[in-house]
C-alpha cells in the first residue's frame, strides 16, 4: 500500500507544483498522469481530478479575493454559464467512450499549450458597456504604486457563451479550463489580465465542484485514488505558489509547452489506436 500511496502522492504533488508554476492548474497534468502512469480508467481520473481542482482553487483564490484582484460580481454572473456547462459535461462524460475522451483531452492540452505561449496585453477598458454597467460589473485594481485604477467590462453575452464551453470541457475532462476562462474574460470582455486570472481561479472551484458532484453522486469517484490525489495536488500547488516568485517563468513556460505537446501526442496516440 505504501508504494501505491507514495506513487499517487508523488504524481499529484508534481502535477500541483507544475500546474501552479505554469498557471494552467493541476488538472491538465493529473488526468494524463493517472491514465498513462497509474493505469487508471479515464472517467475515474477525471473524477479524482475534478475533486483536486476544487481544493486547489479554494487554496489559491484566497489571497486574490482578499487583496481585491478577483471581480466577484463578474464571477457570480459567469458562474451561471460555467456551472450549466459543467453539469452538462459531467453528465455527458458518463455516456462518451474512453478513447473519445482521451482524444478530446489531447486537443484541450494543445489549446492550453497555445494559451501558455501567446503574448498577453493589459490595457484597461475605460468604461463598461450598458449591460455590464447596469450589472455593476466594472471594478478597480491596484496599479504598481498601489493606486486603485477603475476598469470597465464589455460583451457579457460573448464571454458567457465561451464560459458554457469552458464548463462543458471542465465537466467532461476534469480540468479547471482556466485557459478558456481567461481567454473569454481577457479577449472578449476586456478585463485586465491579472483580474481575469484571479477571477478565473475563483470560478474554477464552483465549475469543478458542479462536475465533481455529478461524478460523486454517480459513484465515479474512487476515494482510494481521489483522497490522496486531492491532498497531493493541494500540497504541490502550495509549494509551486511559494516558488513561483523566485523562478524565471518565461523559460519555464517554454518547457511546459513542450511537456504539454508531448503528453497531448501520447494521449492522442493512445486514443487513436483504440478507435
Amino acid at each position: 500500500m505504501l508504494t501505491i500511496l507514495a506513487g499517487l502522492f508523488a504524481l499529484s504533488i508534481g502535477a500541483g507544483f507544475v500546474g501552479a508554476l505554469s498557471g494552467l492548474g493541476g488538472g491538465v497534468f493529473i488526468v494524463p498522469g493517472l491514465v498513462i502512469l497509474a493505469h487508471v480508467p479515464m472517467h475515474i481520473a477525471v473524477g479524482a481530478s475534478l475533486i483536486s481542482v476544487v481544493a486547489t482553487s479554494a487554496g489559491a483564490s484566497v489571497a486574490f479575493v482578499r487583496d481585491g484582484w478577483t471581480n466577484l460580481r463578474v464571477a457570480i454572473i459567469l458562474e451561471c454559464a460555467t456551472v450549466t456547462g459543467a453539469v452538462t459535461g459531467a453528465y455527458m462524460a458518463g455516456l462518451i467512450s474512453q478513447p473519445a475522451l482521451e482524444l478530446l483531452f489531447a486537443l484541450m492540452m494543445l489549446q492550453s499549450a497555445w494559451f501558455a505561449m501567446k503574448s498577453q496585453g493589459d490595457d484597461l477598458l475605460p468604461q463598461s458597456d450598458p449591460l455590464c454597467a447596469r450589472l455593476r460589473l466594472g471594478g478597480q485594481m491596484p496599479d504598481d504604486d498601489g493606486t486603485m485604477q477603475p476598469y470597465g467590462v464589455r460583451n457579457l453575452p460573448g464571454g458567457a457563451s465561451l464560459m458554457v464551453i469552458a464548463g462543458v470541457l471542465s465537466g467532461l475532462l476534469g480540468i479547471g479550463a482556466g485557459a478558456v476562462k481567461v481567454t473569454a474574460m481577457d479577449y472578449l470582455m476586456k478585463l485586465p489580465l491579472k483580474v481575469s486570472s484571479a477571477t478565473s481561479n475563483f470560478m474554477i472551484g464552483v465549475t469543478a465542484g458542479a462536475g465533481a458532484l455529478v461524478f460523486l453522486s454517480r459513484g465515479d469517484v474512487a476515494a482510494t485514488i481521489a483522497a490522496p490525489v486531492a491532498l497531493g495536488v493541494t500540497a504541490g500547488a502550495m509549494i509551486g505558489g511559494r516558488v513561483l516568485p523566485r523562478v524565471n517563468t518565461n523559460a519555464l513556460r517554454r518547457l511546459f509547452v513542450v511537456i504539454l505537446v508531448l503528453i497531448a501526442i501520447e494521449m492522442g496516440w493512445r486514443a487513436w489506436s483504440r478507435i
Binding site: 460580481r73 451561471c80 459543467a86 459531467a90 453528465y91 453522486s217
Partner: peptide, 21 residues
Amino acid sequence: VYVTATAYVLAALAVGVLLGR
C-alpha cells in the same frame, strides 16, 4: 439580480447531484 444568479447556481448544483443519481 445577484440573488437570482446565485439561486440559479445553487439549483444547477442540485440538478448535478440528481443527474449523477
